[in-house]
Amino acid sequence: MIALLTRDLRLAVRAGGGFGLGLAFFLIVTVLVPFGVGPETGLLSKIAPGVLWIGALLACLLSLDRIFALDWEDGSLDLLATAPLPMEGIVSVKALAHWITTGLPLVLAAPLLGVLLSLPADGYLWVLVSLAVGTPALSVIGTFGAALTVGLKRGGLLLSLLVLPLYVPTLIFGAEVARRGAEGLAVQTPLLMLGGISAGAIALLPFASAAVLRINLR
């Protein structure tokens, strides 16, 4: 399992795309928003938490089809399926690798990009916390979507369509934590809900993903 994780991380670093792609997309979104809505500081600081969350979510979505597609094409997925690793473990490691290569850089970059959007001072901590708690759920849910569409020719579009509605609760609670934090309100309820979603998704969805992957490999 650790071998699979280190392999995926190494591939992400070597192939370049992994770490850079999501991060670059995140940067582009947050830099473009002020051009779109105008440079007014008050407006920007009001929408900053939401923009950061949407940017992170889209950056995550962008890299989902890489989770299984490459292993599917070169046949490693078949070989992994015959290896002594449980399928649930494989999908969990894949989700973890996706989070480390995509989610974690986004979490770390978000405060920096918050400066560009004049995020209020109270907001930095809560943007960071909400993304740290919420992005694992995005990776795990995305892995489920990627397992559903692995091997399909027009998989990319379908993957986005399937995953988008599944992302809604995470986005709502995540952005709510960040928004309330930025406005200095109590964040406890949405933060608990966000943590609940993440924990539930991490605990249960790998079983669904593994079942789906087994069906697709059949």
């Binding site: 489920f144 559903l148 399937l162 509605p165 599944l166 809604v168 609760p169 709502i172 609670f173 709510e176 309820t189 949405p190 809900m193 979603i197 969805l205 669904a208 079942a211 789906v212 069906i215 697709n216």
Partner: peptide
């Protein structure tokens, strides 16, 4: 696959309903 999607989707649909109310 669609059956599993329907199951998982139902859970998330309920969550969304709650989330949207909260929002």
């Amino acid at each position: 696959l669609t059956s599993i999607l329907c199951l998982v989707g139902s859970v998330f649909a309920l969550l969304s309903r709650y989330a949207v109310n909260f929002w």
